[in-house]
Design a protein around this nucleic acid. Structure first.
Length: 505
RNA sequence: GCCCCCAUCGUCUAGAGGACUAGGAUGUCAGCCUUUCAAGCUGAAGACAGGGGUUCGAAUCCCCUUGGGGGCACCA
């Protein structure tokens, strides 16, 4: 059997969508599984919707996910060009060919005429659709219109009767009545092709063996089928992937950012996931599990494992809601599996941005390395790390003094605890975790307080947060001087508040 | 409106007529651990959309209903 050749054919009308990424991923997996080629083709025939920065985003996002292409932009290949905008003569040639062989015809209708036709159809409650008026033009009528210099499009002359049955590798046989089909436009009046023509011509010329794409394309397969037949070409294998639905399960995944009832933002572009601190390997793993599963048991697996196991026959046809909470969990799993150095490398750009610090300074900061393992098991997104580390670089602000007072603890106890902690820590010779722990535990016992009653106020005083990495390593990282300074500051605020806020405390 | 596709826990899924008392994961809840929060460990609740067939036997096959999704452009 000939080598497998699959393609991902995005349109540069927007950033790479998560659903598009899944389509690309499945194609890529199949190419790698079969040892075939994965081709990237840019379908830029819609000049109205073209967005200049989207092409770069698509390339960047695919590379970020590790979906490398064997032929396509910036890579080349033997079947180029890979931009449809550079293949216009090819489409025009084949459009002419179809007209000459009676499979297509020139239609001279203007947009106004078509609008009027639809209006009449609506009024008469007839079926809406092109009535093929130009299909039946006599040679004389045609010549007259050409002589007038009227603009024309090329339309496919679909059979009026009969039906098409084609096979879908995921869904089986699907039948459409020809009578329901439109004489679709193949070549626009500006000489550019529509999707239908360009797609069929390119897939054939590029020797594509399998078409895997979103199932919103199913309805246009009959048209393509007729095109292949008119050309006398062998159609590839079709496999229509289930669409990804919104996390709510309602409707196809939005094209733009969506918001959950609880206010959480569900990103839809790959770049948004990257910005939020998702790992590419987590996205890869996650996406592969929508509409396909490795074995029904294993959730976490690497790309080699997925490549080995992937097959079109394992793709199941039903639409799936994007399980956003599962992705978050999975990202946490991948973060926890990272080697410390790797984690630091990946974290640095996010920290640098959040804390406005140069990356170099972060990379050489030993205190960061000390805290890193503890941050690692507490974050599910790379962007969450800053909140667990910022007190290393900025003096904490305690907005709410109540945060200093644990439950079942009096302000007096806290004041006593902080005050004694300062004394004990200032005179501590050995600023190690073990020594700090021993000191503070003994102090708590001495004061007759539970560990938390003493530790929690210290945590808040030193980090400004109720939630932070474990206390002793945190104090070690922050350093004796800063620790004691912050404890004193907290104590002072507490003393100060006795007069002004006593009632509320 | 017409056409097409789809249908297992809230969600992602396993399930190719008997191995199903329907498995895994996530999420939720409870407990343990514990200096906070996580992580980890235990445990619990939670699904074959409904109705007809076919068959000795149906989550699995067929039909209908219902529900969901998609398509009907000189967009892809």
């Amino acid at each position: 059997m000939a080598q497998t050749r699959v393609r991902f054919a995005p349109s540069p009308t927007g950033y790479l969508h998560i659903g598009g990424a899944r389509t690309a991923l499945f194609n890529w997996l199949y190419a790698r599984h079969t040892g075939g080629q994965f081709i990237l083709r840019i379908e830029d025939t819609d000049r109205k919707r073209f967005q200049a920065d989207s092409l770069q985003d698509i390339l960047d996002s695919l590379r970020w996910l590790g979906l490398d292409w064997d032929e396509g932009p910036e890579v080349g290949g033997d079947y180029g060009p890979y931009f449809q905008s550079e293949r216009l003569e090819i489409y025009q040639h084949w459009a002419d060919w179809l007209v000459e062989h009676g499979h297509a015809y020139r239609c001279y209708c203007t947009a106004e005429e078509l609008a009027e036709m639809r209006e009449q159809q609506r009024a008469a409650k007839q079926k809406i659709g092109y009535d093929r008026r130009c299909r039946w033009l006599t040679p004389e009528e045609r010549a007259a219109r050409e002589a007038e210099g009227r603009a024309w499009v090329v339309r496919l002359a679909v059979p009026l009767e009969g039906s098409v049955t084609f096979h879908d590798a995921i869904r089986g046989d699907i039948t459409y009545e020809n009578a329901l089909l439109q004489d679709a436009v193949l070549l626009k009046s500006d000489g550019w092709p529509t999707y239908h023509l360009a797609n069929v011509v390119d897939d054939h010329l590029m020797r594509i063996t399998h078409i895997m794409r979103g199932d919103e394309w199913i309805a246009s397969v009959p048209l393509h089928w007729h095109l292949y037949r008119a050309f006398g070409w062998e159609p590839p294998v079709w496999a229509h992937l289930p669409v990804i639905l919104n996390p709510s399960g309602k409707g196809k995944m939005s094209k733009r950012e969506i918001r959950r009832p609880d206010g959480a933002v569900i990103p839809v572009y790959v770049r948004q996931y990257r910005e939020m601190g998702y790992l590419p390997e987590a996205i890869f793993n996650f996406l592969s599990g929508i509409g396909w599963s490795l074995d029904g048991e294993t959730e976490i697996y690497d790309r080699e494992t997925a490549i080995r196991a992937f097959d079109i026959s394992g793709v199941h046809p039903s639409p799936a809601a994007l399980p956003a909470d599962k992705l978050l969990w999975m990202n946490g799993v991948y973060i926890r599996e990272l080697e410390p150095d790797d984690l630091l490398q990946r974290l640095t750009p996010y920290l640098s941005q959040a804390l406005s610090l140069p990356e170099a300074r972060l990379l050489e900061d030993e205190r960061l390395r000390l805290l890193l393992p503890h941050v690692q098991e507490r974050i599910k997104l790379l962007t969450e790390a800053a909140d667990l580390l910022d007190y290393l670089y900025i003096e904490p602000v305690i907005d709410d003094l109540k945060a200093l007072i644990p439950r079942k603890t009096t302000p007096e106890q806290v004041r006593e605890g902080l005050s004694r902690a300062i004394q004990a820590l200032e005179s501590l010779d050995d600023w190690s975790e073990a020594a700090i722990e021993k000191t503070l535990r003994e102090l708590a016992a001495d004061l007759g307080m539970k560990a938390g009653q003493l530790f929690n106020p210290i945590r808040v005083a030193v980090t400004g947060k109720r939630v932070a990495p474990p206390l002793f390593v945190t104090l070690r990282a922050v350093g004796r001087e800063a620790t004691c300074r912050r404890l004193r500051a907290a104590l002072a605020r507490l003393d100060n508040s006795v007069h002004t806020e006593q009632a509320s405390l």
